[in-house]
C-alpha cells in the first residue's frame, strides 16, 4: 500500500475510534502521541480492533507498543508486517 493511502486510512480509523473527537488531519499531524489529542484507552482499543479487522493482522501487545504512538509509527509497523 502506498505511503499516503495507508497513513490516510489509518487517520480515518483514528477519527472513527475517537468518535470524531480527533479529526483525520489532527491524527496525521500529531508528532508525539495520539493520546495527546484525547484518544482514550477505549479509543486505542477500538483502533487496534479496527486495524486488525481492516488489515488482517494481529497486533502484538507483548513487547514495546510505541508503534501505537503516531500514525507514522503505526504505518511503519504495519508495513514491516507486509501491509
Amino acid at each position: 500500500m502506498t505511503a499516503t493511502t495507508l497513513e490516510t486510512d489509518l487517520a480515518g480509523l483514528v477519527a472513527q475510534a475517537s468518535e470524531g473527537a480527533v479529526t483525520p488531519a489532527q491524527a496525521l499531524a500529531e508528532p508525539h502521541s495520539l493520546g495527546l489529542l484525547g484518544l482514550t484507552s477505549l479509543g486505542f482499543l477500538r483502533l487496534i480492533h479496527a486495524v486488525e479487522r481492516r488489515y488482517g493482522v494481529a497486533l502484538d501487545l507483548d513487547d514495546d507498543v510505541s508503534y501505537l504512538d503516531t500514525i507514522g509509527s503505526l504505518a511503519a509497523h504495519l508495513r514491516e508486517r507486509g501491509v
Partner: peptide, 10 residues
C-alpha cells in the same frame, strides 16, 4: 503499564 493496560483490555 501502558502496554500492560492494553493487554489487559484485550
Amino acid at each position: 503499564a501502558w502496554r500492560e493496560s492494553l493487554r489487559a483490555y484485550r
